[in-house]
Design a binder for these strands. Sequence first.
DNA 1: ATGGTCGGCAACCGA
Length: 256
Amino acid sequence: MKTATFNANSIRTRIQIIIDWLAENKPDVLCVQETKAQDKDFPVDTFAQTGYEFVFKGQKSYNGVAVFSREKITAVEFGLDSEPKDEARMIKAKTAGFTIINTYIPQGREIDSEQYQYKLDWLKRLLKYFKNNFKPTDKILWMGDFNIAPDSKDVHDPAALAGHVCFNPEVTALLQKFIDWGFVDLFRLHDTSGGRFTFWDYRQPNGFKRNLGWRIDHIMGTEPMAKKCTNCWIDIKPRMLEKPSDHTFLVAEFRN
DNA sequence: ATGGTCGGCAACCGA
């Protein structure tokens, strides 16, 4: 069983990347964030040809999430179970024998902004959601764009980036609370070296070539999923140079 | 050097 996550930054612009990647890698489940398409504009017909089941929730211009699965997708809920729900930032569903939570966590803009406070609140509400609705012994995969680099190993210049909305003691401590509850960082489980990134800001000139990256996309599994996880890796290859997109695919594989 | 690049969507906002 193979799962993956990808921040598309417009699913309509990256549609060929996603179609090709599904065909080449045949994951059982793919979670996508930042689809940036209203539901009426989601490319339903094109994706129907892949044979995958899929569910999605978008809004105008920003955010938007989608889940693709080779198996039936059931028990679908959009957004948090508290207000504001933020439907276009989260999908909960059951498929392939486990619960999937796909999140696009708010980026936060600047430390002294309302948007950063919203990010912190959102994370606290999500933690409460897990505690209220699940047990650490449940089979859960929580994946997506977290907009949090967990450790100094996970940013290209920890000294310069310390205090960034995606890398500071406050957000990393919040992420740790999810780990304390029962989630395992499946990439870190299989690769303890640093300098492995999932995102390169394309506002930085030649950011990918200079490897000015961040590890902010994650696949978190509860213990039953972590035990079965045989590998977790970032799929970079030459794809990033041929078909630019600022995030790459993060993949995890599981024994049955 | 306070810019630089994308994407949505039609003037700027968000990353």
